[in-house]
Deep mutational scan, measured.
Amino acid sequence: GTEIELESKNGQREHYTATSEDEARKIIEKAVRRGIKRIELRGASEQLIRDMQEIAKQIGLQYRTDGSL
C-alpha cells in the first residue's frame, strides 16, 4: 500500500495507509480540499507521484516522497 502522512496548517498530523492508488488519490484530494500544509508519500506509484506533483504545483503545497520510484 501507499503510506500517506498529512500535516494540516495547525500542525496536526494524520497517517493513512491506502490499499489502492484510487484510495490514495481520494485521501489526497480530501486533504487538499480541507487545506493541508504538507504531504508525504511512501510507496506511491510513479503515476501517483506525478499526479501529486501536479496538485502541489497548482496549490503551492509542500510534498515529499521517499524517492522509491
Rank of each mutant, 00 (worst) to 15 (best):
G1W: 14
G1M: 13
G1E: 11
T2N: 01
E3T: 09
E3Q: 09
E3V: 10
I4R: 01
L6F: 10
S8T: 14
K9Q: 12
K9V: 12
N10W: 11
N10C: 13
N10P: 03
G11R: 02
Q12W: 11
Q12G: 09
Q12H: 10
R13Q: 07
Y16S: 01
Y16C: 04
Y16R: 02
Y16T: 01
Y16D: 00
T17E: 05
T17K: 11
T17R: 12
A18F: 15
A18W: 08
S20T: 12
S20N: 11
E23W: 04
E23K: 03
E23R: 03
A24G: 02
A24H: 00
A24L: 07
R25P: 00
R25D: 00
R25N: 01
K26L: 13
I27S: 01
I27E: 01
I28F: 15
E29S: 09
E29N: 08
K30P: 01
K30D: 13
A31C: 06
A31E: 02
A31M: 07
V32I: 14
V32A: 07
V32H: 02
R33G: 08
R33M: 12
R34C: 13
G35A: 04
G35R: 04
G35P: 03
I36R: 01
K37L: 13
K37H: 11
R38T: 05
R38E: 03
I39N: 00
I39L: 12
I39R: 00
E40M: 15
L41M: 08
L41V: 13
L41N: 00
R42P: 01
R42E: 03
G43D: 04
G43V: 02
G43E: 02
G43A: 04
G43W: 08
S45C: 05
S45R: 02
E46L: 12
L48S: 01
L48M: 05
L48T: 04
I49C: 09
I49H: 08
I49V: 08
I49W: 08
R50F: 09
R50N: 07
R50P: 00
D51V: 15
Q53T: 08
Q53W: 13
Q53C: 12
E54M: 09
I55L: 14
I55H: 03
A56W: 06
A56S: 04
A56Y: 06
A56F: 14
K57Q: 08
Q58D: 07
Q58K: 13
I59K: 10
G60F: 09
Y63V: 15
Y63Q: 10
Y63W: 15
T65E: 15
T65Q: 11
T65M: 05
S68Q: 07
S68V: 10
S68N: 07
L69Y: 13
